[in-house]
Amino acid sequence: MTTPHEPILELKNISASYDAISVLHDVNITVQRGEVVALLGPNGAGKSTVLKVASALMRPTRGSISIAGLDLTGAAASELARLGVCTIPEGRGVFPNLTVHENLQMAVRKGLPISVVQDRAFARFPILAERRTQLAGTLSGGQQQMLSLARGLATEPVLLMLDEMSMGLAPLVVADLYEQVKVIAAEGVSVLVVEQFARTVLGIADTAVVMSHGRVRFAGNAREVDEATLSSAYLGTKEADE
């Protein structure tokens, strides 16, 4: 299912900093068409910053970003969104004071009327149809993530980027959500998942990238990542202990 040599997202030599605090050092990440890439690492490793840079919410101090071969370094986040990059940021990707219906209206574009958006969203998550007029902020955490996924996917993106979907959610709900991501990937959407809970996503990922201290420590086949590597990256366990 992976078509090699057709990169959808290419981050080259990215360095980034918050004020004086530099958080990324020379990061290179590529997502090929139809591939699921899991970006792993302990907190503070810089994973979310990678996503902020990739979605253009944050300007890197160095390096370039291309989407489907198009150099988009310095473009606005809204431009990327219009080009088919769907990002679901950390926390809940919904507008809490807008109703479910209004949240879905945010996906409306030229040639994509609300009726189509709604049909696609409700087909994927029927529960949303029942909650149509409810304020998004009053949905459960899992439903909120469903809404943000549904809204993003209604635009038929080429690249889906997910940031810490599991944050603050019960493990069962998380498992359900990632089951959906698997379905999405099978439909041919390239996915970049940022996740602290490595085991949860390794099962659905083709490629894994492990980061710590703002650098990429490992990049390769998701199946090559074993417990020992992870536990040393996350808990500082010496590998000899295993």
Binding site: L57, A76, T87, F95
Partner: peptide, 12 residues
């Protein structure tokens, strides 16, 4: 509600 999220949804 959320400026960044709006931008990620294509709003300017």
């Amino acid at each position: 509600d959320n400026r960044n999220l709006a931008e990620l949804n294509g709003a300017r």
